[in-house]
Design a protein around this nucleic acid. Sequence first.
RNA 1: GCCCGCAUCGUCUAGCGGUUAGGACACCACCCUUUCAAGGUGGUAACCGGGGUUCGACUCCCCGUGCGGGUACCA
Length: 477
Amino acid sequence: MPDARVRTRFAPSPTGALHFGSVRTALFAWLTARHAGGDFILRIEDTDQERYIPGSEALILETLSWLGLNWDEGPEVGGPHDPYIQSLRIATYREHAEKLVDGGHAYWCTCTPARLAAMREAQRARSEPTRYDRRCLTRQADVTQEREGGMAAVVRLRMPDGVSDWDDVVRGRVSFANSDIDDQVLLKSDGFPTYHLAVVVDDHLMEISHVIRSDEWIPSTPKHLALYAAFGWDVPRFAHVPAVLGPDHQKLSKRRGARNVLEYGELGYLPSAIVNCIALLGWSSGDEQEVFALEELCQRFTLERVNPAAAIFDPKRLDDLNGIHIRRMSTDELVEALEFHLPGTSKETRRMLVPMLRERMVTLADATRLCAPLLGEVKLDLSIEFPPKKVDQATAVAMIDACIEAVEEGALEDHDAMLERLRAVAERSGVKSRDAFRVLYIAILGTPAGLPVIEAMEFLGKEKTLQRLREARARLG
RNA sequence: GCCCGCAUCGUCUAGCGGUUAGGACACCACCCUUUCAAGGUGGUAACCGGGGUUCGACUCCCCGUGCGGGUACCA
């Protein structure tokens, strides 16, 4: 590569939403570009009309934007190689296919699907690799006539003899015997290119320096290499990143129920945590740091440190990282981020809530549950023991009475003093304060576990607090 | 069937001929503590098998096994 500029691309097909596997490939490509100060290109590979799912292109753009993976060239932003949508580039592929035919690197074929199927079946029966038998290559004059007569035809790559090999950035040397490789169809009978033609033509035209894609493409790389050679083009670097597997050890796929990444946003996961988590799926820094902001990843990420083995996505790890990323957010950021999960609350309200919430959320959605007793009424749950275990009736009464007295006297102003008073009551009763306090938690929050109770009382204010305490007192008889 | 890739705790991984095989998640225990969390400390837990190469293999080579992928006018 004479041109040193790093240019990577993410080239999804609009066949549905993005899942962790596809997003991770995008992330690795994006990071490679950003790390090198190069360009990241987004290209839509919609050469299969049958699999096209309307709306998925918008979904893809939205997902990448949400994660912060911006593109320098591509849909919406344009660029010097516009258009970045393959269905709009059909003429280009056709020209290139014809060029290949003229140069003897490809040929027209009119074999029917039925014939091809029978051929492959026979090959399999003979323990041979399944590949096109080049029947049409030996009867090109007839094929030309058939095409003129209106018969459906495709263009096939004439796979050269020899060996195909390359130095894969993540796997090292990979090689194939060309004799095992099929004469791939390059141009379909509907006039659309196949992936193989389109990807090579576009990657070259768009000056892609590093082809970063999932490892399912390894077996077709020899075809691409043959195409680069036939065109006389320089070959980019290839980096085949491993698959992401689900808990069932199967590759993540839409039809197996892999979640749309955007859904994680609705569930209260942060883009930064998702990015951090999937970066760690196959990549490691080399030292012991595992929590990264996006900017740090740009700095540290290199393809050379990508592990070639497939990885299983662990939702527990995402939870952990999400909590960490939440705790790293400023109060202002949380006030903003929580708007969706605490609907109807004002900024001021959220600002009061955030200090109580920060250490207690795994996802932002936890705020909804945690704050419910403060934003609405307490739910009386009779399945919750009251007074709780290890607390006798007299102690429970004493705790509540003391709390009522303290609140009436305005002790909510001073958390420490409040705490001391209540602690003293527990101590006099001979009950551990951790147990005695549960009485208050149930009274104020309706559950023995939740937001810190003194802070909660302050949030509720004197009136509501006293009301809840008295109701609880009444339950004790 | 044919071809390719991969292989360290349950999971994500470090390791790049000589290490008490390290870290993180999860799990367990303890500490801290106004509950729950968060935080702190400690613990359980791994080199797929067999052959080589070497003074010495988790590390290199071969075979096997397992898993994944490809084998389309899908990407």
